[in-house]
């Protein structure tokens, strides 16, 4: 093949996060992004689906990385993650998913503390 199909953008991620918290409160954050997470191994005998994997999720609070995940073949399709965050002050959060072809999906959220 001499041409490669145009890359479709990654799906818009979904974030579930409280809008407000008390100072020092530990909040629960849930994230989900629709993605096939094709390892290129699955169904090898019957004509493999080509590899198509998200590799990394990075969560920043006020610009500083607070949580990250390197996703391997064993991460299920439509990656879902739950983690916790201690809120000391009102903060802006940024969630970034990156795939092996350099595509990026972003989501942001603000948690009001006080």
């Amino acid at each position: 093949m001499t041409t490669t199909p145009a890359l479709v953008p990654l799906a818009q991620p979904r974030i579930r996060i409280p809008r407000s918290a008390k100072p020092g409160e530990v909040i629960e954050i849930r994230t989900l992004i629709e993605h096939p997470m094709e390892s290129g191994i699955r169904g090898r005998q019957e004509g493999a689906a080509p590899r198509d994997m998200l590799t990394r999720l990075v969560v920043r609070m006020g610009g500083e990385t607070v949580f990250a995940a390197d996703l391997g073949n064993g991460t299920a399709a439509n990656p879902y993650h739950v983690f916790f965050l201690r809120m000391e002050r009102t903060s802006d959060l940024e969630f970034t998913w990156t795939d092996e072809r350099g595509r990026v999906a972003r989501a942001t959220a603000r948690v009001q503390v006080g």
Partner: peptide, 12 residues
């Protein structure tokens, strides 16, 4: 910053 060392996900 997480305050709690717990992670949930779904695996294959």
């Amino acid at each position: 910053a997480l305050g709690r060392a717990e992670v949930q996900t779904r695996i294959r």
